[in-house]
């Protein structure tokens, strides 16, 4: 039977909707709604999570991530500048560092810092330092590459103008290039922050006191206490409270810088 293009498109779409409706009906009929509701939407279990899930777990997740990001940013900037250095060994060291920490799982870094360093060097950091250093080491590798790209994206004419006004190379870098590089990389940098927020969950491995719980650990403890998935779902929702606005911010910044660059091009063209 020969079908016209329109008939074929209509049939194809009809089949897709048919499959979807069938799937929904099957799930509705055969799923055990009582158990599912009990697992995910158990109000009693949910009630036990508050207010600590917000006042302790969410706050701690934000603190761990914030510390890690701050350290990652500082270290990342140093690495980016090393990578752009005219001194070979600086470039090599930065490259080795970046490749290493981008290539190994964050989990391994946490184990090394949380268990390895205390055992090997008899050094014990408190949990906030361990979190900041681990997340900072991992984050800096990604941030360094982003920053390097941002610095290189600043037009060379900016440095020439700064130098011709009598600024030294480093002065031009600090006052002219780096601020503009940050504007360029704000969207990808926001994404790094989102990734770091999720990586902060790995701290749960390190054996936390109750006041040190972050969202993942808190959810897990809730699961143990209630036997319900509800605490895990709540913890997940709390991550979204952090990551969704950041995601929107990132996309907003991307649109804004994109528009700005268009304007800039129009004027210079």
């Amino acid at each position: 039977m020969a079908m016209s293009r329109r008939q074929r498109a209509r049939t194809f779409r009809g089949v897709q909707y048919g499959v979807l409706v069938l799937a929904v009906v099957l799930i509705a009929v055969f799923a055990d709604w009582g158990t599912i509701r009990n697992a995910f939407f158990n109000l009693d279990a949910a009630a036990t999570q508050f207010p600590e899930i917000l006042s302790t777990a969410l706050v701690n997740t934000i603190i761990y991530t914030g510390l890690g990001f701050a350290l990652g940013l500082a270290l990342g900037l140093v690495l980016a500048l090393m990578k752009l250095s005219s001194v070979g060994p600086y470039r090599w060291l930065a490259t080795i560092y970046i490749e290493f920490f981008r290539g190994v799982p964050a989990l391994l870094v946490f184990i090394a810092l949380g268990y390895g360093v205390p055992l090997a060097f008899q050094l014990r950091f408190d949990i906030y330092s361990t979190a900041a250093i681990s997340l900072g080491l991992v984050g800096s590798a990604y941030i360094a590459e982003t920053l390097r790209a941002g610095i290189q994206a600043v037009p060379p004419g900016q440095v020439e103008a700064a130098r011709s006004l009598g600024m030294s190379q480093s002065r031009a870098m600090i006052t002219i290039v780096i601020p503009q590089a940050f504007r360029i990389i704000l969207p990808p940098l926001t994404n790094e922050l989102i990734l770091l927020t999720k990586d902060s969950s790995l701290i749960y491995l390190l054996g936390l006191a109750r006041t040190e719980y972050e969202l993942a650990k808190f959810g897990r403890e809730g699961l143990n206490a209630t036997g319900s998935l509800t605490p895990i779902l709540l913890a997940g929702l709390c991550y979204l409270i952090i990551t969704l606005p950041l995601g929107y911010l990132s996309r907003y910044l991307e649109r804004r810088t994109g528009r700005k660059q268009d304007e800039g091009l129009k004027v210079t063209a």
Partner: peptide
């Protein structure tokens, strides 16, 4: 060189104003 350049103003084809 930085001191020497202070006395030399330069105007570029592409303006090169500091965009930020």
């Amino acid at each position: 060189i930085d001191k020497a350049r202070r006395g030399i103003g330069m105007v570029f084809q592409g303006f090169n104003l500091f965009g930020h």
